[in-house]
Nucleic acid binder design. Structure first.
Lengths: 356, 356
DNA sequence: GAAGCCATTCGAATCGATTCGATTTTCGGC
DNA sequence: GCCGAAAATCGAATCGATTCGAATGGCTTC
């Protein structure tokens, strides 16, 4: 026992590997081998394990091990919003699932929320690599720190950042494709319902002002894609990706007299699109006869079976998997390149030519 | 530079606190104080921080810190299913959010999946406390290890386990209350749709056999509660908590001739109930005239607005918060007791007297 | 019987900080 | 200008393992 401090005050302090080694009559190094499965005779291993059992020793302390090895087996997953909001979105959840699949049971996922202000856990938590999920540049400081620490970073649909490997989908292109479809159908008066453009979660009119201050790469890209086809496309910025938000936005856009009302609405997510469709139906409009609604994501939405949504199907789980395998590669010392995944247009039954 | 090993091969290895101290011309202990905010003159602190900047040193290594302090600031959250399935359930997600709220930015949540087989990350990951989310006793071995390690454990709606603090809701009582309501309305022929009773995710008839081997406390308790009122209540075990599962089960239960068909269905979750209602409507039955459907949870379900579901509202976020604050207390050396939260009956518009 | 090998085992250094008690400074009060 | 308390700083021990190169031992092979 140390003459100095005793962190865990009181009681019998846990046994350490050294204690086990002593009881088993072997050196510390040998005892270590017994647990890590190094080259050791099975007789000795047995003796060590028995001693361990006797002392109630349950294996090497992960803290010490990770200090020595410089590896903890933990991958940090950094989300910007609170847990509830982030994972209510099926795409984000699917991506997390993809990460988890790819990394397997070997490593744990450390969920870190970065609200942007000041020093947070990000700087003091133990992890070997970081994956940003749709995070804004509030994190510049944290990223800088990780870079200094030599922690490999991967961003899923985040802003480009030096030293951060990017896993993206072709948001802009896919969005343009969708807009082109709508254009081809003959629509000329339309509106969009976008995902939040900044970290402020408030419904608002889509203004140039707002676009200029946008920090969310995903929504900006989707908007810009659509604007490649409809230059001045306006609309509403939703406060999040939910059908309720879509409903509210839809009500606002569609409850105008027919001649001002958009004949097509581009929603930036399927959840929003579903909400818009519900709003349309609440206003006694028929989809797609009176209004065409298209989404984005290809999410399977619980209980939405009346329509087959026209949308773009993005490889959500695949995004996570790609991020996971990038992390694995980076940790192995390789230098994988950025990943770009593509989405597939799905023409369903919610799009059609404008009435009249 | 060590004469021995060099874990991170190549390049200039990261600067350490000792290097910073040397450059600043102070002792290691003083340098440490500069970062941890101990009693130190601001002049010295500044000198240390400057030296740190110069060396590209970004602060104490979390690994070393956690070894010395015996604390990592990480709380393990153990789920049994894969991420996608676990958090698709709004109640589980809400609970996770509650945990995160309560623990705050101070600590990270380490997500660990316990599929039950063999040694996993659970045994080698760095964390100070563990929260089990609806986990079955597969984990006996892991629990044993954590106990030896002196890691405080909290289980949210898990099986009772020695040394594991329990945070529960009154599943049995609430379920009985709901069943009593249905009984009072006059129903005598009914069926239930339960959540999975074991870790096998497969739809099946509810048999005594299955009940006997049940490992999922939640569904078992809800079933037993209902059986306090309807002794031999039978039905279907769903493969998960989704409206699709509910739909399938509903179709099976309701597509019988009127005189055999249950007049009321007790679903063990709101998602299941919504599915059952959709099945009823698909079969041209009117709720609650032809069939009463009640749920459990009090979840706000996207796009389910036609009905006001009769259900029991459970404090899902609160469960998480309670678990979080229990963890905090345990880590502070206190000895909080088990927590039992109660749900509130909500009588909506999906329940009524049986027809005829 | 000596030499050569392979499989084990050991000792000591190391990972990078924190912490305690002791020592030195600083400074107000008289 | 001196004394004692409070503040700042330092040295050394410690947290609990892993790792490397060297040392030991038992075998086969010539």
């Amino acid at each position: 026992m140390g003459v100095h401090n005793q962190p865990h005050a009181g009681l019998a302090s846990r046994a350490t590997l050294a204690d086990v080694a002593k009881l088993a009559g072997v050196s510390g190094s040998t005892a270590s081998l017994a647990f890590s499965g190094g080259s050791i005779s099975s007789a000795t291993r047995e003796r060590v394990l028995t001693a361990a059992r006797e002392l109630n020793y349950s294996g090497p302390d992960p803290r010490a091990r990770s200090l020595r090895q410089g590896r903890s087996g933990i991958v940090g997953v950094i989300i910007e919003d609170r847990v509830l909001n982030s994972f209510r979105d099926p795409m984000t959840l699917a991506a997390l699932d993809g990460i988890s699949q790819e990394l397997g049971e070997g490593s744990g996922l450390l969920l870190l929320t970065a609200t942007g202000d000041g020093e947070s856990t990000i700087q003091s938590a133990v992890f070997d690599a970081a994956i940003f999920m749709g995070c804004s540049p509030h994190l510049a400081r944290s990223i800088e720190i990780m870079r200094q620490r030599n922690v490999p970073m991967v961003a899923i649909e985040g802003q480009a950042f030096d030293g951060v490997l990017a896993v993206n989908i072709d948001n802009r292109h896919a969005s343009a494709e969708l807009a082109a479809l709508v254009h081809t159908l003959g629509h000329r008066r339309l509106a969009t319902v976008t995902l939040p453009l900044t970290s402020v979660r408030e419904r608002a009119q889509l203004t140039d002002e707002l676009v200029k201050t946008a920090t969310t790469a995903v929504s900006l890209d989707r908007l810009l894609g659509a604007r490649q086809v409809f230059a001045n496309l306006g609309g509403i910025v939703a406060a999040g990706s939910s059908s309720d938000e879509g409903f509210a936005a839809g009500m606002e856009l569609l409850s105008r007299p027919a001649e001002e009302r958009p004949t097509a609405i581009l929603a930036q997510s399927d959840l929003l699109a579903v909400g818009v469709i519900r709003a349309a139906e609440a206003l006694a409009l028929v989809v797609p006869r009176d209004v065409t609604v298209v989404g984005f994501d290809g999410a399977r939405i619980e209980g939405f079976t009346d329509h087959d949504l026209t949308t773009v199907r993005q490889p959500a789980t695949e995004k996570g998997r790609a991020a996971g395998s990038a992390v694995t590669a980076l940790l192995a010392g390789e230098t994988p390149g950025d990943v770009s995944l593509s989405s597939v247009l799905h023409v369903g039954s919610t799009s059609g030519p404008p009435a009249g």
